[in-house]
Design a protein around this nucleic acid. Structure first.
Length: 269
DNA sequence: CTGGCCGAC
DNA sequence: GTCGGCCAG
């Protein structure tokens, strides 16, 4: 074989290699197919996206979010927590990182340094332990909100554990969570990250045949009250935040379920 | 589980 | 800047 043909062969191999590599990268990034106002994950048919009041929705492997640039945090983070997602694996805690997928620039973790506030996960690390990547993604600053430590490790943690219990019991729930980014708020850091005065969590179970919802609204302080004392209607959270949580749902079902603040279908044992 | 802080490299 | 170890609710 001549030197020239060896060179040609090498060139072809390199081009082929780069092409395969880029194709692989694209497949890694494009875990989901996005249509207007709704993300249809190809591994589930139970994925609901709320509306965005900010116009900036970002998708990751383990969750989607709507980023509020003025408040330097997500107005909501949404993800499906399936029974199969729950594992005992103990991943090492990674460092918090700025989310480069947020085009307007996600907050730096430095804002939280010496602020007296926790870097509180919206999608808990404990909900994404089915893979190293999904776990580490929860440490992106787009998934973080300033939280009082006693609240974060207290009743908010209790609620997150209850969500995992329900995910196990009902074989999966869809979760939307965030701080209420309204009214007068304290801010921290150079980027003035807002400290929400309330946090909410909205759940829908569309797996067990009969669709059911529940919503929680909590003041940003620890409490020894039982969780069901914080149950409100989805309508109330929508009125407070301006977010429409389940726009794809059949209107008749949506209106009925979102108006209810009953928690009889959810086991608090 | 939820986190912070501190010192070594 | 990053990592490991140790601390607390």
């Amino acid at each position: 074989m001549s030197k020239k043909s060896i060179f040609s062969l090498l060139a072809i191999l390199i081009v082929l290699g780069v092409y395969t590599y880029e194709h692989f990268l694209k497949e890694e990034e494009q875990v989901e197919i996005i249509t207007e106002g709704k993300a249809v994950k190809n591994n589930t048919n139970e994925y609901f996206l709320p509306t965005s009041t900010t116009g900036q929705i970002v998708h990751h492997e383990g969750f989607s979010l709507s980023y509020s640039e003025p408040h330097e945090q997500a107005e909501w983070v949404a993800y499906e927590l399936k029974k199969g997602h729950l594992t005992n694996t103990n991943f090492k805690r990674p460092y918090f990182e700025i989310d480069k997928a947020v085009k307007t620039g996600a907050a730096s973790w430095r804002n939280y340094k010496n602020s007296g506030f926790d870097r509180g996960h919206l999608c808990p690390a404990g909900d994404r332990k089915y893979s190293q990547n999904a776990h580490d993604e929860t440490f992106l600053t787009s998934n973080i909100s300033p939280q009082v430590h006693d609240f974060n490790s207290g009743i908010w943690n209790t609620l997150e554990q209850k969500v995992r219990y329900w995910a196990s019991k009902y074989d999966g729930v869809f979760v939307v969570t965030g701080g209420v980014l309204k009214g007068q708020m304290k801010t921290i850091g150079n980027e003035k990250v807002s400290v929400p005065n309330q946090f909410y969590k909205v759940l829908i179970d569309n797996n067990t045949g009969k669709t059911k919802m529940i919503a929680f609204l909590m003041p940003h302080e620890n409490s020894s009250k039982p969780l069901y004392e914080f149950v409100v209607s989805v309508d109330e959270v929508e009125a407070l935040t301006g977010i429409d949580f389940f726009p794809e749902l059949d209107d008749t079902i949506e209106n009925k379920l979102e108006a209810s603040s009953s928690y009889k279908d959810w086991s608090f044992n």
